[in-house]
């Protein structure tokens, strides 16, 4: 049976992890490769690296990091952040990334999704969507959720699927950072309306939030950062808890 996936997300700046991590057994808390290897051993199903650097050297630094991660890690990983062209994707996949995620660049140029899918296949193209519910309507936001657009979340998600994306990573800006649970109502709607996997992001705080997003939110995978980085939730404990709730997980 296909299992629900647990995905730690690592924010990367200039080749280093940004948010603090609380791993006593880590020699270098800023080294994404070491952290990734620990997550792979602790039962993470997949990893996401989100690059937030803004330097000229960004592309090359990220490509180097991908190569180092691929060398050490034996589970799949996705790379996102600032990816805007076929060339960007080509080098990242060539260096060993399993999937890339695009966000703002897809909104600005939706045809990019078709181009990437035609060249690399649906299976490695994830479209990340940041959205915020304003006066009842879910609107897509850009630049890490700072800039609102007039795009409706559900319409955009449908378009993303029609253009061939293999997966959607949906982050609710209303829930992100609250540690109060995922946006399950919107997630369930996405999961029902679309026929591609949906990754839930934003709002993880307690173990039952993951159960809720898989059951009520019908999510295929759940992504979180700080609860894992600060060891508030151990992945193994989380998976055992999910299993107790009859959710299929890899243990």
């Amino acid at each position: 049976m296909l299992t629900k996936r647990i995905i730690p997300c690592l924010d990367i700046k200039n080749g280093r992890t940004v948010k603090g991590v609380n791993f006593v057994d880590l020699r270098d808390a800023g080294d994404p490769v070491e952290l990734a290897a620990i997550y792979a051993q602790s039962g993470a199903d997949e990893l996401v690296f989100l690059d937030i650097s803004a330097t000229e050297e960004r592309r090359r630094t990220l490509a180097d990091l991908v190569l180092r991660v691929a060398e050490k890690v034996n589970i799949p990983f996705t790379v996102g952040g600032g990816i805007s062209s076929v060339e960007d994707v080509d080098i990242l996949l060539h260096n060993g990334a399993d999937k890339v995620s695009i966000n703002s660049s897809a909104v600005k140029n939706p045809q990019l999704i078709n181009e990437l899918v035609a060249k690399f296949g649906s299976q490695c193209i994830v479209v990340a969507i940041d959205a915020k519910q304003i006066d009842g309507e879910w609107l897509v936001h850009l630049v890490g959720g700072k800039v609102p657009t007039e795009l409706n979340l559900f319409e955009w998600a449908k378009e993303v699927e029609e253009r061939g994306a293999g997966e959607i990573l949906f982050t609710s800006m209303n829930h992100d950072g609250t540690k109060d649970g995922f946006a399950n109502e919107a997630l369930a709607k996405l999961s029902t309306q679309l026929n591609i996997p949906i990754i839930a992001s934003g709002g993880a705080g307690k173990m039952h939030h993951f159960t809720d997003t898989f059951v009520e939110g019908k999510a295929d995978a759940a992504l979180a950062a700080s609860v894992f980085h600060f060891k508030e939730i151990e992945i193994k404990d989380l998976k055992e808890e999910l299993k107790r709730n009859n959710i299929a997980v890899r243990l």
Partner: peptide
Amino acid sequence: NDVKVPQIGWN
């Protein structure tokens, strides 16, 4: 289309 396509993950 009875299942989500692509299948992605651990089976």
